[in-house]
């Protein structure tokens, strides 16, 4: 892992990977969109609205995937003082927050025809909403200090505290929901998923994943270059 503690090496790696990841993302999302919008059947119960799921479900997965990466990178940055891990955590947060927001937005769009309302205090939606707040807290803390190194450390601790709390929050929200469960709510997807739905879902999820790596490498590259510029400026000041 310490091979990648060298920002120069990461810069070179990202230069080779970024075009491939970009192409893979474009292909997978185009194929996924075709499969989801044209090739797959409408649901007998949910009708055409089921197609929102092909965006909603991968977005929700990515929201959690990104938080796991955020916490993992923060831990590596804190414990081994790994500079690239710190930057990777910083670069991941806004992407994760965007996926979380997308999951909330598509959930709400799906809820209007299904539940007849834009928002339902469903256990899953509520947990995702709280995850969104955790992302916002991380980003706000990261940018709240005049010394960026302090912001990075404080935010890394916050990411780990949030990571420990995610299962507790999930558990308590589920508990809360079973106490207050309304009379009738459609279960998302139902008990079994038909193979005709599984394929577009898988392709979209793969596309979202390559998209994440594509963007995170771009952002990482920008952070490393910004760091170099800052070092040059400091050299001007201090000679």
């Amino acid at each position: 892992m310490h091979r990648y503690a060298n920002p120069g090496r990461v810069l070179r790696l990202s230069r080779t990977l970024v075009p491939w990841l970009g192409a893979a993302t474009a292909l997978l999302i185009a194929a996924g969109a075709y499969l989801a919008l044209v090739a797959s059947p409408a649901d007998y119960q949910q009708g055409e609205s089921v197609r929102i799921m092909y965006v909603h479900v991968p977005a929700a997965w990515m929201a959690m995937f990104c938080y796991a990466i955020l916490a993992g990178a923060s831990a590596v940055g804190l414990i081994w003082k790994h500079p690239v891990a710190e930057l990777a955590a910083k670069a991941t947060a806004p992407i994760g927050a965007s996926f979380t927001f997308l999951a909330l937005l598509t959930g709400s769009l799906w809820g209007k025809p299904m539940w007849g309302t834009w928002w339902v205090w469903d256990a899953r939606l509520t947990s995702v909403l709280i995850l969104f707040f955790l992302y916002l807290g991380y980003m706000a803390l990261h940018s709240a200090f005049d010394d960026p190194a302090r912001g990075a450390k404080a935010a890394a601790i916050m990411a780990l505290v949030g990571f420990v709390n995610v299962p507790i929050i999930k558990f308590s929200v589920d508990w809360w929901y079973t106490l207050h469960q309304p009379a009738s709510v459609f279960r998302i997807g139902g008990p079994t998923i038909d193979a005709s739905m599984l394929l577009p879902l898988g392709v979209m999820a793969a596309g979202f994943t390559t998209y994440y790596f594509y963007v995170v490498l771009l952002r990482l590259r920008a952070e490393i270059v910004a760091g170099k510029i800052k070092a040059l400026r400091l050299r001007q000041v201090y000679g």
């Binding site: 707040f133 955790l134 807290g137 706000a140 949030g162 709390n165 507790i168 929050i169 308590s172 929200v173």
Partner: peptide, 10 residues
Amino acid sequence: SLLVLPLYIP
């Protein structure tokens, strides 16, 4: 408040 309130939910 942004950091602490979500953690207070449980």
